[in-house]
Computed example of a mutant assay.
Amino acid sequence: MIEIRKATDRGVAEHGWLSSRHTFSFANYFDPEQAGFSDLLVINDDRVAAGRGFGRHPHRDMEIFSYVLEGALEHRDSMGTGSTIVPGDVQLMSAGTGVAHSEYNPSSTDPVHFLQIWILPSEAALGAPPRYQQMHVGEQEKQGNLRLMLSPDGADGSLTLRQDARVYSAKLDGDQTASLSLPAERYAYVHVASGEVTLNGVKLVAGDGAKLRDETALTLTEGKAAEVLVFDLRARETPQMR
């Protein structure tokens, strides 16, 4: 079964310097039917004006994943990490026992467009030390291919996620096809970051998402400058906050 979450149905937050679209309930946006999916709690599609950003603020026991689509994002945190990520970079911050961070657009002229994604850690990982990981994924690695970016065991050079979940990224154009088998008792979530794509025969556009239950595979075809994130998740309906 595929349940579509249309881009136009997402929560909207306009703050002048920040334009955000919330796939799931977040901050002042609340929809009891959209309280996350499996262990996936937040997908925020953020556009931040030049020279602006999110000031230093704390998190605890959360896996926070940032994925830049356009522009650059400057990260600073209480672990002493400092980095600027651009398209192709993958950033994962495991908050663990507690970490404070800021995310800032260092450009004086251009906005930054990025996805901020939260995944709940496993119960066994609660209270673990905070950590930061980053890598770069070349465009050719994602072109017509689902490139593993996050996994619980760091497989295929991916970053290590403190949860039984895997996150893939793909770019598709024309007749390119990318597929992923879904074992029994697994769910999946697909988020179209940009462009257009067809998922198992269903057309999706930028900002659309899809919950997959009881599907044996997902297949992405008919891409038009498409960039897609795919989440392989435990078979549970909503995140269980602890």
Rank of each mutant, 00 (worst) to 15 (best):
Y189E: 06
G96M: 09
F24Y: 14
D164S: 15
A124R: 15
I2L: 12
G51E: 02
G98E: 05
T84Q: 15
V205G: 12
E14S: 09
V42F: 13
R131T: 04
S181R: 14
M62P: 13
A128L: 06
G138R: 15
K224L: 00
S122A: 14
H136E: 09
L148F: 00
R186C: 05
E123G: 15
G80Q: 09
T219I: 11
T23F: 10
S19R: 15
D173G: 11
Q163C: 07
N145W: 02
D175C: 07
S181N: 13
G201F: 02
T84N: 13
P239K: 06
P106I: 00
G80L: 09
G154W: 03
M241W: 14
G80K: 12
S25N: 14
M1L: 08
S151E: 06
I2G: 05
H113C: 10
S122M: 01
Y29S: 09
M135D: 03
H191S: 12
A206W: 00
S25M: 12
S122F: 01
L148W: 01
P121Q: 04
D164F: 12
Y67A: 02
T8A: 15
L212Q: 11
H22G: 05
Y168H: 15
V99F: 13
Q116T: 07
D173C: 09
L150W: 04
G144F: 01
A226S: 05
L204T: 02
E3F: 08
N200Q: 13
G53F: 01
L161D: 03
D45N: 11
E63N: 10
A13R: 11
L172V: 05
V12R: 15
L233G: 06
V230D: 14
M79Q: 13
E237K: 14
K6V: 01
S122Q: 04
Q240P: 06
L180C: 11
Q116V: 08
V12D: 13
A35E: 11
R162H: 14
L146K: 12
L126V: 07
R47V: 05
A165N: 13
E215L: 00
F24Q: 06
H191V: 00
G157W: 01
A27V: 00
I43Q: 04
F30W: 11
P129Q: 12
Y189D: 05
R131P: 01
H113A: 10
S151Y: 01
A49H: 03
A225L: 04
M79W: 00
F54C: 09
D31K: 14
V112N: 09
H75I: 00
A50C: 07
H57A: 10
E103S: 06
W17M: 03
S20L: 06
Y189K: 11
L233S: 07
E237T: 09
D232K: 01
F65V: 08
F24N: 02
A193R: 02
R162Y: 12
L159I: 02
V230Y: 07
Y168N: 10
R52F: 05
G71V: 07
G144T: 04
L40Y: 07
R52W: 03
T216C: 10
L41Y: 11
T84V: 11
P129D: 11
E215A: 04
K6G: 03
D153V: 03
H136A: 10
P58I: 00
S169Q: 15
